[in-house]
Nucleic acid binder design. Structure first.
Length: 425
RNA sequence: GGAGAGGUGGCAGAGUGGUUGAAUGCGGCGGUCUUGAAAACCGUUUGGCGCGUCCGCGCCACGGGGGUUCGAAUCCCUCCCUCUCCGCCA
């Protein structure tokens, strides 16, 4: 949610920001409602002040034995007027709130302006020593390889649940678990995060807090009977840990990392990149979440990307960093880097991580604030998060990059102590 | 699933229609005293909104929402949550 005061004071900046993000320019409507709202509040507060003043006199009048009937009558009229204004105000508040909830965050000034993914910018890439985009033998894609080695079974996953629900078997299941444990340990030991194991069903307030609702409602699973949503990312429960809280300055920056399965309906995306692991309804992800002071958040964003990169370097997997342009930026994000790993079978880069700074956008929705040392004022924190990383796409790159001409898969050095074996097949 | 109890300030805990945004205690912060500390004593200590922005003034909030009333923490309705007991399941 954007700050209404900021919109009031910088309408043109907001207009431009919304245009750059490819969103509807509703600034005019917002300003109109805002003005109406403030006018009614001023009017109403005056009436309430009168009512309070008279009310406090009534016990005194009664004590003196004076007649209160005429006062009551007048105050009844005032009361009715207040009720009317209250109603009007509620309607305006609802309307304004609804519009603001549908208004996306604005991009940071360092984000390139662009319409679509075409205009994203590659910031840097990292390739393992001796790496080549050309291979001397035919690389099997992760589906064939998974089948051949009997470590991934998409058919049976489909039988159990439906398409997009992967089944890992044997060394595949172990490798997946090893990846998760490796990444968690890495962030805990080398990057100073605190581990979180959150609930994976959350209520509607939590989904609203991080901005998945209302915009992405159709992409979420929903358990109607209990009003709970299976999380699309650990960002939701972990960011909501501090919903409706006031943090103290000296505990910031808070850095959490947690593993959860993630659930996405991916409505309407069938056919495109939907085979195997490329688009799934359930996947595993290790997520990093930060709560930072506003002045620190962009530095923390760079750190977040670096933390995710460290994992890939430790695994020796080729990747590149993409800075998303304004048009490709998600609803809540002010700035976002994608990390894409190389798939030699697909011959393309696959998004394995997304690291974003939401500035105060989520904090305002979720009411997450902090207080500076010695200050009475509260401010909204900046929230950030990034996958560190999602295992499904990472698994694709890993299986493909580490396969041998014989169709076996070598386990990366860093994972061997977690798997207990060095080669699959 | 059945029965009961309860949701008040950072915490504990009063308050059952009228200067109660809220007693009291603890905690926190500031001060006095002290060589220093403790103790004691004094003071202070919620958040949001609107107007003016130097000082300030006003409004709202006692789980959420609605209602009764001149006036609600207090009465009524409704929803949510927590706890205890029983049953059921893991």
């Amino acid at each position: 949610m954007l700050d209404i005061k900021f919109i009031r004071e910088n309408p043109d900046l907001v207009r431009k920001g919304l245009r750059d993000k490819g969103a509807v320019d509703n600034v005019e409507k917002i300003l109109e409602l805002d003005e109406k709202r403030r006018k009614i509040i001023a009017q109403n507060d005056e009436l309430k002040a009168l009512r309070n003043k008279v009310s406090s006199q009534i016990p005194i009048l009664k004590k003196k034995g004076e007649d209160t009937a005429s006062v009551f009558e007048e105050m009844k009229r005032v009361g009715d007027e207040i009720a009317e204004l209250d109603n009007e105000l509620r309607k305006i508040d609802d309307e304004l709130e609804e519009i603001l909830r549908w208004t996306p965050n604005l991009a940071h000034e360092s984000v390139p302006v662009g319409k679509s993914a075409e205009e994203n910018v590659e910031v840097r890439r990292w390739l393992p020593e001796g790496f080549s985009f050309e291979n001397d033998f035919e690389i099997l894609d992760h589906i064939e390889l998974g089948k051949k080695l009997d470590i991934l079974d998409f058919e049976r996953g489909t039988k159990i649940s439906g398409s997009g629900f992967p089944l890992y078997k044997g060394a595949g299941a172990t490798l997946e678990r090893a990846l998760i444990n490796f990444m968690l340990d890495f962030h805990l030991q080398k990057h100073g995060y605190k581990e979180i194991l959150p609930p994976i069903l959350v209520n509607r307030d939590s989904m609203k807090g991080t901005g998945q609702i209302p915009k992405l409602e159709e992409d979420m699973y929903f358990i109607e009977k209990d009003g709970l949503y299976p999380i699309p990312t650990a960002e939701v429960p972990i960011t909501n840990i501090h919903r409706n809280e006031v943090l103290s300055e000296n505990e910031l920056t808070i850095k959490y990392v947690g593993y959860t399965p993630c659930f996405r309906r991916e409505a309407g995306s069938y056919g495109k990149e939907s085979k195997g692991f490329l688009r799934v309804h359930q996947f595993n992800k290790v997520e990093m979440v930060k709560f930072a002071k506003p002045e620190d958040s962009y530095e923390e964003l760079e750190g977040l990307v670096k933390d995710a990169e460290d994992i890939l370097q430790a695994l020796n997997i080729p990747y590149r960093i993409i800075l998303l342009c304004t048009g490709d930026l998600s609803f809540s994000a002010a700035k976002c880097y994608d990390i894409e790993t190389w798939s030699p079978a697909e011959k393309k880069w696959l998004e394995a991580s997304s690291c974003s700074n939401f500035e105060a956008f989520q904090a305002r929705r979720a009411n997450i604030r902090f207080k500076r040392e010695g200050s009475k004022k509260t401010e909204f924190v900046h929230t950030l998060n990034g996958s560190g990383l999602a295992t499904s796409r990472l698994m694709v790159s890993l299986l493909e990059n580490y396969q041998t001409p014989e169709g076996k898969v070598i386990v990366p050095k860093a994972l061997q102590k977690y798997t207990g074996f060095e080669i699959i097949g």
